[in-house]
Design a protein around this nucleic acid. Sequence first.
DNA 1: TGGCACGGTTACAATTCCGTGACAAGCGAT
DNA 2: ATCGCTTGTCACGGAATTGTAACCGTGCCA
Lengths: 224, 224
Amino acid sequence: MATILIVEDEADIRELVRFHLEREGYAVLEAADGPEGLEKAQTHLPQCVILDVMLPGMDGFEVCRRLASGETTAQIPVLLLTARGEEVDRVVGLSLGADDYVVKPFSVRELMLRVKAILRRTEQSRRAPTLNRNGIILDGVAHCVSVNGEMINLTATEFRLLEDLMRHPGAVRTREQLLNTVWGYSFEGYARTVDTHVRRLRQKLGDKADMVETVRGVGYRLHA
Amino acid sequence: MATILIVEDEADIRELVRFHLEREGYAVLEAADGPEGLEKAQTHLPQCVILDVMLPGMDGFEVCRRLASGETTAQIPVLLLTARGEEVDRVVGLSLGADDYVVKPFSVRELMLRVKAILRRTEQSRRAPTLNRNGIILDGVAHCVSVNGEMINLTATEFRLLEDLMRHPGAVRTREQLLNTVWGYSFEGYARTVDTHVRRLRQKLGDKADMVETVRGVGYRLHA
DNA sequence: TGGCACGGTTACAATTCCGTGACAAGCGAT
DNA sequence: ATCGCTTGTCACGGAATTGTAACCGTGCCA
């Protein structure tokens, strides 16, 4: 499941949060100061960072800024822990790119909900190695596809075609777009080739065949 | 820029928030109760909804639930306004799919920052050129159109025609202009062809048919 | 009031578009 | 070499789409 990094100098708070996060099934990394937090963020690329603003040495804002400017770490959502009533701090934090904050002393339950909310928001945009839409599951690593739990056997071309459609659920893909991504830019052939492969794909999809919709005069689309 | 809907029964709070939102450059819609808020959300698809929990009649949680279960409105982020200290409410709200909350009485500055944070988070996924005028929603990526929340089925030509009109709301488009952009410069045909397609389009638009206005002697125009 | 220009409406034939089946070339394994 | 599988192309046919023409309704102007 998701990995979460907590950067906090007070050990008892780290333990408290770790305990609850692990009970929810998350993997937890700890760091006691800013530099350690930055380094663990860069090496482990957690799905979320819980970051105390008051840190010895480098403060949380500086960590936040450096995370946002790093190429690999810019996408990691940050949840700030601030002291009560420091509205100025919150303002600075949010404008620095933090995704959310919680005021200390905080309700653990609320913190968990906020972490979940952040992960829920980001997991949609993150590219999943296995795609799953309405009973069609495509595993890019194992290179296999199941429909309603039953494995089906796709050829390489059919697999890439389905993959492209599933990566753009609800979006129309023109024959040219499909030829470019599935067959490659060097392919110089008949656009109707796509049709034939769509037909073969639909055949193998069985009762989920109508998930692949025809948009007449435009192209094909995976039902959203 | 972005459109924001505020659902709040107290008119002075609506005005206060509207004033600051408009100063930031946002377009603002107002609704005084839950049903009105739902309806405006469905027809205008704002980029964000600011929703008071305490509403006469249908409360904010119910509005939130219905927004989340609607196909077109599920993606709209919701920012809840709750009364001080009602942690139970916050928890319920966040688990219902609200993206954030602010406790009343709130700092306007903080509210603005939270709205900006929400918009920043969602604008990445909102890159899609979806046009929206008065209940007619045209999604260029999915290549589909909905009127009052109901999907309608347009042919490719009808779609391009509506797209051109919606890209120029309130502006008259002559038949020649339409022929050039919708049919392409190479088209050499009868200008009255446009009329036939306008008619077919109006038929499918149902009670929104009069959004496509005739400007006698000039061309057609989408009602502003 | 009548004529006229313009757009709405209807009908229809031509065309386009897509699903389907068939087929041959390519390719790897046996 | 032979077989089986994959893949690209093609032709046919049905269905949806589209352009055109003819006819009708309405507003405008003298």
